[in-house]
Design a protein around this nucleic acid. Structure first.
Lengths: 353, 353
DNA sequence: TATAAGCGGTAAATCGATTTACCTTCTAAG
DNA sequence: CTTAGAAGGTAAATCGATTTACCGCTTATA
């Protein structure tokens, strides 16, 4: 019964060593120039023996900074999120920061419809922020898609904020996102390098940022290669399999040797349409995908595709907040808008002609 | 310059209302029977106006409990982790708990080899735990694969701990994992219901828990259906595409009408082998997958498969820790070992004969 | 010879909340 | 008329750490 409950505190260590609390604190924080070697050693031994771990709660309360960064994820399960989050965590780990994640979808009771309802999105975001404000965070990273409108709801908190993958309408925060122009450009350049000059494109929704920018890149590459950009050869639709299926059926009539699909899901749909007609992808026609999702190596033949630089986006975003946190002066070096290129993964669906 | 820095505290609110700190605290914590209605109202208004949010740091320090649960993920990017984590977060959200995630892979400097090296795994785990002990958590959930050895390293912390998906060697913690026996059983039952009685199996590694148990389930179902279990018809290999490719080539000589692949990746390899020989899956032969990964709907024809109950595993694990946290008495109601069945997703790769 | 600086260490304030013990005043019961 | 209890509120202790101010003593400097 002389036994104390709960974990061992700095007070316990101090008592066990017969020194003051401050001395223990000093040793633990490397200010050992203020403590004699014998005492320091004794304390270190006792700390190890007792299994003492300083409470980050108490530490943070005193220090004001919690050394933790909040991640707001629009949808944690969405294909791009986990890798971005891992990139963020990796970088934070390196710099000694903790991470807490809020998943917006959860606040929406598992429905997806809210993504389409802007009022609801705003409301959800506000709830999430209220919860996070309670957490005494040092900074915030918003991970989402390009599609949605993120308004200036954060400002109240006064925290450093950066956007990963997503873009805020008012462009108020540093942003790290895909370089879609270069993506489209590189895709065409690669296809041309393989001898293709008659190239079809199956795109996502026609008014989508990714779509628009990739088409820009495509046009740029074609101009350089002196290929006439034929709007008849690009089919807009959806990002999903069905879009690829329909797009490919449309393109089947055209005179092309290769097709650039703006997502791997689209490519899988294209495969389906091809197979239906007995045309084998990678032999009779070349197919280039985008995203490098798991599916791309599951297809037969394995899909050559452009890998999304997701961990890098996360990592650079994290670096940016940390920088903002540690030198608050540097805030307004022109709100950054960094675009990070995708990298080509060669597999077997594009052949040299 | 009369301006205070930092966020608004309870003291500020108290001052603004001309009452004591305790009164504000009482109002905020619903003990309003100790406060007159006028004052309570006044405080609530002021709280809203000033945008005051109680610091969870200070609150937790005082309350001992942080209302947060730690997740240790062996590999956050691994296909099963994000969904399990989402399940956990969903449940925690509902019960008012926060969540912090540690990704073991990060501590291993992005290498995967450590998963094979048990000493390294233990060391990594110890590091992660040391970090988490600092966080004053209320409970812990370990999310990992069945493959690895998780020793009794946690005990020191004295925290409630449960395992999600993974299993600890010493079976010391409540465990929520796949019901592989039922999985194998249901798979065969389904195939039989579609008229198949000559069924091949492409399994994972022969000494893997999933493999062993699913085979058990297969045998049980076949016994029930009076089908002779022929060991020649089950091909062990790897969980990945290559395993499926080789397995299918092996089975091509046999007299079968359907093949049960123990992962979607295996099924994708089977598709490849089939296509190579001009056999079309879903028409000439039926294929059943397992996992319900993205890839399954990307294949042509779309793969009928068994969906892993990942969110449910996460959710039930979370419920269990929370229960352990809130009634510490209930600790030893026989260490639970709950097995959760997979659910069949019908698509187009299995046809009635 | 003053005076300053260094050394090794401690007591007490502090961070922002919760909680306990207690203090008035007022009302109702004996 | 006294006293018990309730209503409404406050001061101070507390949670576990960090940090500041200071203390007594020795040694170097002007």
């Amino acid at each position: 019964m002389g036994q104390k409950a709960g974990p061992v505190t700095i007070r316990d260590v101090a008592k066990a060593c017969g020194v003051s609390i401050s001395t223990v604190s000093n040793v633990l924080n490397g200010k050992s120039n203020k403590v004699s070697d014998e005492i320091a050693e004794k304390i270190r031994i006792e700390v190890a023996r007792m299994g003492y771990r300083p409470s980050s709660l108490a530490r943070s309360l005193r220090a004001v900074s919690t050394k933790t960064i909040g991640i707001i994820a629009e949808d944690l399960i969405e294909f791009s999120s986990p890798s971005i989050v891992e990139g963020i965590m990796s970088c934070c780990e390196e710099h000694g920061y903790n991470v807490v994640i809020e998943n917006m979808r959860l606040f929406g009771r598992w429905h997806r419809e809210w993504l389409l309802d802007e009022t609801l999105l705003d409301k959800t975001l506000k709830d999430v922020l209220a919860k996070m404000e309670t957490l005494n965070l040092d900074g915030l990273i918003y991970v989402g898609s390009h599609e949605h409108t993120v308004r200036n709801l954060f400002s109240a908190s006064g925290l450093p904020i950066v956007m990963a993958y997503a873009v805020s309408v008012d462009r108020q925060y540093p942003t790290f996102r895909l370089d879609d122009i270069t993506g489209g450009y590189d895709a065409i350049k690669y296809l041309v390098s393989k001898g293709h000059r008659k190239i079809g494109v199956i795109a996502g929704e026609y008014d989508n940022t990714h779509t628009i920018n990739r088409v820009l890149g495509i046009q740029k590459a074609m101009l350089e290669e002196r290929i006439l950009f034929d709007p008849e050869l690009v089919k807009y639709g959806s990002w999903f399999k069905v879009g690829g299926y329909e797009g490919m059926k449309y393109l089947l009539d055209k005179d092309i040797t290769a097709v650039f699909c703006m997502s791997d899901a689209i490519a899988s749909g294209a495969y389906a349409a091809l197979l239906e007609r007995g045309i084998v992808p990678g032999r009779d026609i070349s197919v280039l995908g985008y995203d490098n999702q798991d599916i791309s190596s599951g297809l037969t033949p394995e899909l050559t595709t452009m890998a999304l630089p997701l961990p890098e986006i996360g990592c650079r975003a994290a670096n940016a907040v940390i920088n903002l946190i540690e030198n608050p002066g540097a805030v307004s070096e022109d709100i950054a808008d960094v675009r990070i290129p995708s990298v080509l993964i060669e597999r077997n669906s594009v052949k040299q002609i």
